[in-house]
Nucleic acid binder design. Structure first.
Lengths: 337, 337
DNA sequence: TGGTATATTGCAATCGATTACATTATAACA
DNA sequence: TGTTATAATGTAATCGATTGCAATATACCA
């Protein structure tokens, strides 16, 4: 591999000059600069990023922890992250944890071993091992769309989940629905509680009775949506409206309802959450909450870089606006169902 | 940050011993080893990966070039890559190029600057800039699902695209279809040619006339599928069967056909390619070619690591088996359409 | 117990950059 | 032209690890 030495030889200057010519050209005379550039060109020299990182102490990369790469919603966030990071000269390390704590610890450890300067977490778990917990104090961490559990409060980029599900619930209540079902994702997270609270508060103020028995689910997947529908429809008071805590669940729910011969939305209304791309193109198009995932990803980079650079944060919680998209999967209640 | 020095101090040994205790424990006596471990524990020491990478010359990471992160098919490949990489102690750098050559060059440059040891390319473009082309000679590169254009032949992990589209075409011909439309993705790639050849050869041997005029498209997106359907249906001889070159296109095609009041598959059959997750859950479920994307991603890692480690490759082209999934978006021709 | 083989450990060079400090060249000015 | 301020360059230390070689400690054997 060609190193700076080779360039020195070709240009007849010292390593210091080469380094300066490339990083701080203004410190080097125009003549020498040209000579160095030509030597770089000739030799095909590329500075060894790792070596410079050792010296500067910055790896110029961020690591992103994803609970499950197959969820297309995360993709939009990651895309935003990747773009913003690149604009700032950072590269993105990807870690798919599959929800396994061991993997999380391992990947989060990258920040501790100088492989990454900061961590963006797309899940609610505390990503470090108990052993490393105290080390995590000094590590730049931001979470997106979820709040990280545990003692330490990390900055978070999120949606007003409470208000968003309120909107959804009101939307359905306006259509005269009285009997509801909920297919949730992971139930141990803060966003689950927020979303549930939003719904229940609407029910309470509208005088709609709701039993926790009508909450099913447990994972953010299409299959969970199918299973959830089967569970709900087996109950005594079948719901006429189903709130799904993400679009994958809603997709599965719609699919399963239709398979069972139940019409959407004529018999049962279904609403989702996230607005993944396909939601607009299924039959019927899904009523859902649009999260500005791309922008949220970008914001996460902005915030984590502020922490890295020691810029004080204006606030530790960035709340993004949501947008309820009323499409055709929800409609007036069917009294005969 | 705690460095090896701190551990030395606590354990009362030299840096060499600490390094060995951690990397080659068998070279250190049990007693000292324990002392070192305890010191590591106490100090919360984490070896600086970058520093060790400088010395060893290996970054232990791979960079993945994705043309467009919003295509869910890539996700499955990336997931396979990420898993396999992690199992081998490698981490994955993600680069979303958005098809922009400048971005590609920049990201591919990571391998040249020692930031990554190898490159996995999910597109057909030659990823290096003209300037770096000669440097690319010594760089471990593998492509997945696409063949990289240019003089140099890189190892490739791919499907037998020719045979796969043959199967699709035969499947439709068996249903007595005579009038076909194709909605393609990027038309300048090898896989496009392979897929087209497969279809045309079936047509030729079956005596079906086909005009290139019936090939529309140009991008692998849902919107392209919609546009493609509009283009095809505006033609004099409307097709009764449409071959889409990926599932996103097919999704858009099905959506648009239904929107136009054309039934799928009763009036028009639609087939896709890739088998993304949702394809099984739309209405109607999509007939498509299942690519073992996850396995292909894993294979890509295996191959690129072989190149990195100087293990001679058995073959430079790994062909994976495809699987045609006959679902409900395709059926017998409707003579009255 | 003495001597050799082997297991442990430390010293110091090294990886490929960056950068503080020292030195030399150039410019500016009286 | 001599002096001083400034620009340009070089020397060598440094970042935090790894590792070849040398030195020392222990084990083994006669």
């Amino acid at each position: 591999m060609t190193t700076v030495k080779e360039v020195c030889r070709l240009a007849g200057v010292s390593t210091a000059t080469v380094s300066r010519a490339l990083k701080n050209p203004e410190l080097v005379s125009a003549k020498t600069r040209e000579r160095v550039f030509k030597a770089v060109q000739e030799s095909g020299y590329r500075p060894n990023m790792l070596a410079s990182s050792v010296k500067t102490g910055k790896s110029n990369s961020l690591v992103v922890l994803v609970p499950n790469l197959s969820n297309p919603f995360f993709l939009r966030i990651i895309q935003g992250i990747e773009q913003a990071a690149h604009e700032q000269g950072y590269s993105v390390l990807l870690g798919d944890t599959q929800g396994e704590p061991a993997r999380e610890h391992e990947i989060a450890g990258m920040v501790l071993s100088n492989r990454a300067d900061g961590l963006i977490h797309l899940d609610h778990s505390f990503p470090f091992s108990a052993n490393d917990a105290h080390l995590a104090e000094r590590v730049p961490v931001v979470s997106v769309c979820e709040r990280i559990m545990g003692d330490k409060e990390f900055p978070v980029i999120e949606l007003d989940n409470y208000a968003a599900t309120r909107s959804l619930a009101k939307h359905l209540v306006n259509y005269e629905h009285q009997k509801f079902g909920i297919i949730a994702g992971q139930k141990d997270s803060q966003i689950h509680l927020d979303r549930l609270a939003g719904i229940k508060d609407v029910f309470a103020s509208e005088g709609i009775s709701f039993d926790d028995d009508m909450i099913v689910g447990g994972a953010y997947s299409i299959e969970m949506g199918q299973q959830g529908v089967r569970d709900l429809m087996a109950k005594d008071n079948r719901p006429t409206a189903i709130l799904c805590f993400n679009d994958d669940i809603a997709l599965g729910a719609v699919f399963e309802l239709k398979r069972m011969g139940i019409r959407v939305p004529q018999d049962v209304s279904v609403v989702g959450f996230d607005n993944i791309k396909v939601s607009a193109f299924i039959d019927p198009p899904l009523t859902t909450i649009d999260q500005p995932a791309h922008e949220m990803g970008r914001k996460a980079v902005e915030v984590v870089l502020q922490i890295i650079n020691g810029v004080p944060l204006k606030r530790s919680r960035e709340i993004f606006p949501y947008n309820m998209l009323e499409r055709e999967s929800s409609g007036p209640v069917n009294p005969d169902f």
